[in-house]
């Protein structure tokens, strides 16, 4: 196995690992608050679950980028391609945006979602607004995902 392949795998692992860890963190924050609200009013389960799930997308974006990398270097079905050290490094760099932004944005989205859960505990009629606030944070994860995909797409083997 060449160093190029190893670097590309590092990129995939970085994207999946950090974005996923951030999502786990964020969902944990939102879930802790959600459980408190449910102890008062179990009927809000649907809304609370919805809000708790919001920081979960970063993990999926990370998985997607990781998967994309694996596909590109032929690790998932298909024939493995030759990856030079420079190409591998480029793949690693391309994985950075979703890894970093995914990690941080998921945590902050989790905090916002926790706040939104507290909001619907007080005002159940405001679910729409409660969903919008955490979704604002996610925008940057989407942009990072986009950046990672476009960067990856630009690397030619």
């Amino acid at each position: 196995m060449s160093l190029g392949i190893a670097l590309a795998l590092l990129g995939a692992a970085f994207a999946i690992g950090f974005a996923g860890a951030g999502s786990a963190w964020g969902i944990g924050i939102a879930g802790a608050v959600g459980a408190g609200v449910l102890s008062e009013d179990p009927n809000k389960f649907g809304q609370v679950l919805l809000l708790q799930a919001l920081p979960g997308t970063q993990g999926i974006y990370g998985l997607l980028v990781g998967f994309w990398v694996l596909m590109k270097i032929g690790f998932l079905g298909g024939t493995p391609v030759e990856v030079s050290t420079m190409q591998g490094l480029a793949v690693f760099f391309a994985s950075l945006p979703i890894g970093i932004v995914g990690f941080i944005s998921a945590i902050y989205q989790g905090k916002t979602a926790a706040g939104s859960i507290a909001l619907i505990a007080q005002r159940p009629g405001e679910t729409g607004k409660a969903i919008v606030l955490p979704a604002m944070v996610e925008t940057y994860a989407v942009l990072a995902l986009l950046a990672s995909i476009l960067l990856l797409n630009g690397i030619k083997f």
Binding site: L63, L64, T139, V142, I149
Partner: peptide, 26 residues
């Protein structure tokens, strides 16, 4: 500009579904 780019999520989310489905199949 930000509003417009925000719609890139349509593509990204669609791709996510297809990609995870592909992982399941693999």
């Amino acid at each position: 500009l930000g509003d417009t780019l925000s719609y890139s999520r349509l593509f990204a989310l669609g791709l996510t579904t297809a990609a995870i489905a592909m992982i399941v199949n693999t």
